[in-house]
């Protein structure tokens, strides 16, 4: 694989649709998801549980459960190669090679019966033609890189002997073993305590900048992504509802879902518990996301949307709002048209 031309995105997902066979019928987990990860940029994929963010990552990496999931349509292009049509042998070289992966729960991703140094060295040897001692030296270097103060002493530790934060650092070391062009991180800090999660976010940010690596960061935490990512892709019920520059989406969301979702988080440093009952109430999104076994007609957020109008019964197209911002809402267009002279 050659380096992509700089004007082409490193990863491009186009019209991706994935469904699962369930007892209750076919569940359309993703329906026409499209977004790009430009080279050297950090893109966040955010959404609630069931929105399809992890399924997107699994489809890109082709690690969907074989028994009941299938990719219905779409294209995933990574550095000029179509990943969905790649033979499995070649895909194995991509996974853990040019695309590194970090999952939420390191304890279930690491092999409990091998020392961590061995597991890192194996990752190196799987993708590179190096000797055992070279791979071991590389493991030491990687452990130091991810913040182990005395990596030589930790090479022979087993995963269960390490804390959650340290295990996640080992996962990052394995993901970095082959200098990936893209790191896919699926909720990498969700299982960690706040002070440890902050360390990991800072580490990811530092490594990414230092190596010019692209990052696809999957999270339900809109605040964490503001720190780490350049762009945001918001998913709702299996569709992209909004994309744009991170700061713009967080400060001035265009889609009613993004707006409601941002408002429902407790405010930072509120002046303690307000005496006034009304002031203390958090804005909520009534109801719950639709059941994707029966795909709703029209806008998928319509039933919960405070701004919904009769026209929302027609499926809204993704509307380009300029400056890389897009929103799947007819009202956003109308509002912008009114605002513009």
């Amino acid at each position: 694989m050659t380096a992509p031309p700089s004007d082409r995105p490193l990863l491009s997902v186009e019209d991706l649709a994935v469904s699962f066979d369930t007892d209750g019928g076919t569940l359309r987990a993703l329906d026409g998801v499209s977004f790009d990860v430009p080279a050297g940029r950090a893109v966040a994929l955010v959404g609630e549980s069931g929105s399809g963010k992890s399924v997107t990552a699994q489809a890109i990496l082709r690690i969907l459960p074989e028994s009941n999931a299938r990719i219905d349509r779409g294209r995933v292009t990574f550095a000029g190669t179509d990943l969905l049509t790649l033979p499995e042998r070649a895909m194995r070289r991509v996974r853990g090679g040019r695309i590194g992966i970090v999952f939420q729960e390191p304890l279930s991703s690491l092999n409990p019966v091998y020392p961590v140094g061995f597991q890192i060295a194996e990752a190196v040897r799987l993708h590179r033609d190096v000797s055992r001692s070279q791979a071991r030296a590389r493991a030491v270097e990687l452990l130091r890189k991810v913040g182990f103060p005395s990596p030589e002493e930790r090479l022979d530790a087993y995963p269960h002997e390490l804390s959650g934060g340290m295990r996640q650092r080992v996962m990052i070391a394995i993901a970095l073993a082959c200098d990936p062009a893209l790191l896919v991180a699926d909720e990498p800090t969700s299982a960690l305590d706040a002070t440890v999660a902050a360390q990991l976010l800072a580490l990811l940010d530092e490594l990414r900048r230092e190596r010019g690596m692209s990052l696809l960061f999957i999270s339900h935490d809109l605040d964490a992504i503001g720190h780490l990512c350049d762009e945001v892709v918001v998913l709702y019920a299996g569709q992209v509802v909004e994309t744009g520059h991170a700061a713009r989406v967080l400060d001035a969301p265009r889609h009613p879902y993004t707006r409601a979702r941002l408002a429902s988080a407790p405010p930072r440093i509120s002046p303690g518990r307000r005496a006034d009952r009304a002031a203390r109430r958090l804005p909520t999104i009534e109801g719950s996301p639709p059941d994707l076994r029966t795909v709703p007609v029209g806008c998928r957020f319509r039933a919960r949307c405070p701004d919904a109008v009769a026209a929302c019964i027609d499926a809204p197209p993704m509307v380009d709002l300029g400056d890389g911002a897009r929103s799947r809402c007819g009202l956003a267009v109308a509002a912008d048209a009114r605002a513009a002279p």
Partner: peptide, 15 residues
């Protein structure tokens, strides 16, 4: 350690 919108990662106090 709690991220806030807009703050940089380096602004997070890393204990």
């Amino acid at each position: 350690a709690v991220p806030t919108r807009g703050g940089g990662v380096r602004a997070l106090n890393v204990l």
